[in-house]
Design a binder for these strands. Structure first.
Lengths: 187, 187
DNA sequence: CATCTAAACGGACTGCGGTCCGGTTCTTAT
DNA sequence: ATAAGAACCGGACCGCAGTCCGTTTAGATG
């Protein structure tokens, strides 16, 4: 059982984090400032969330869960019921939109000490893409191909394209559709 | 004209950096230790190379230049003379081999403060892929598609696959060939 | 209510990348 | 040779993420 003061402090920290991020953006959030703003010690922050990335992951978890639910159980074409290719296209489009909205947070969450490919949610996307590839009869190492396609949707890459090169979401969507269509279509 | 003491210190620093990396690996190299080992002040290190990433980039530059020369002016199928698709395949294969050899260095060089998509060499690969795509008649936003394909060859991704998931170079090569073949082949 | 213990707490501390500035040294012009 | 000044040097300093450990407190037990 979790001690009540621990629970109270976790809520305080999450509230304070949302506050600070709302004011100055995710990347300006430092653990010292967070601790001070929440009125707790720095050690407490790290015991609760392990690292800065862990905190970001926690903040992201609700929207991540919602996104996952949509492509796993939601209505077609994103959810089950549509052909694999259409779901693949819809997945990319939704993911791009998702990154446009929560990109900074996702970016901050990726700098985990080990990896940034081990983010729990990522495993699910890869698996999802892999399943859809198989459904479309893609037989040449779908596991690895899923990860290659997934790399295309990485937040840092997408944000760089949009913010530095002025690429529009539409253009990203079109390119994604082109990519997966060609990969899935048998030669 | 560069002052002679500055040149001397730069050589000292590069030598010391190669020493330390040879002993403990690239990611164990800290700027403090480097300065101490080279017998110069810390400020000197940063004036010379700007940042840790800049130093790594400098160390990488010879092998990068050699790699670039090979795919731009070297013999086919990597260099000019072969069909676009074959050059594309060869490019990926060579790049994968390159990352296997210099991956740690490339990884350390990517953490530039701004981007990691602005690494000067990267612009060249993207452009190269783009040109080859065009050569094969790929008309749907080759600029963006080149970057998507390039993302597949990012050092951090490749190293993660190999070191964490035990994927072999052959498997990476095959998947790359499959990917670019399908992208280039008209539907 | 008194006691006891595991858990939570906080902030000093470390190591890192990176900046700054007063002092030093090389170069050039006279 | 010498004076001027630009370029360079060193290391103290900053802010950051993350660790450590002595201290406090929740909450269960008698």
């Amino acid at each position: 059982m979790e001690r009540s003061d621990a629970a109270r402090n976790r809520e305080r920290l999450l509230d304070a984090a949302r506050d600070l991020i709302g004011e100055c953006g995710a990347e300006a959030l430092t653990m010292d400032r967070l601790a001070e703003h929440a009125g707790v010690g720095k050690g407490t922050v790290f015991r609760r969330f392990g690292s800065r990335a862990g905190l970001m992951l926690t903040l992201l978890s609700e929207s991540e869960a919602a996104f996952q639910a949509r492509f796993m159980f939601g209505p077609p074409p994103l959810g089950p019921g549509a052909p694999g290719l259409e779901r693949l296209i819809a997945f990319g489009v939704e993911r791009i939109a998702y990154v446009m909205e929560f990109g900074d947070l996702a970016l901050a969450a990726e700098n985990s000490s080990r990896g940034r490919f081990e983010v729990p949610a990522a495993a699910l996307w890869y698996r999802h893409i892999e399943v859809l590839l198989r459904e479309e009869g893609f037989a040449a190492d779908p596991w690895l191909m899923a990860r290659s396609l997934g790399a295309t949707l990485a937040p840092d890459r997408l944000l760089n394209l949009v913010r530095v090169h002025g690429v529009s979401s539409d253009r990203l969507n079109n390119s994604w559709r082109e990519l997966v269509t060609r990969v899935v279509t048998a030669s």
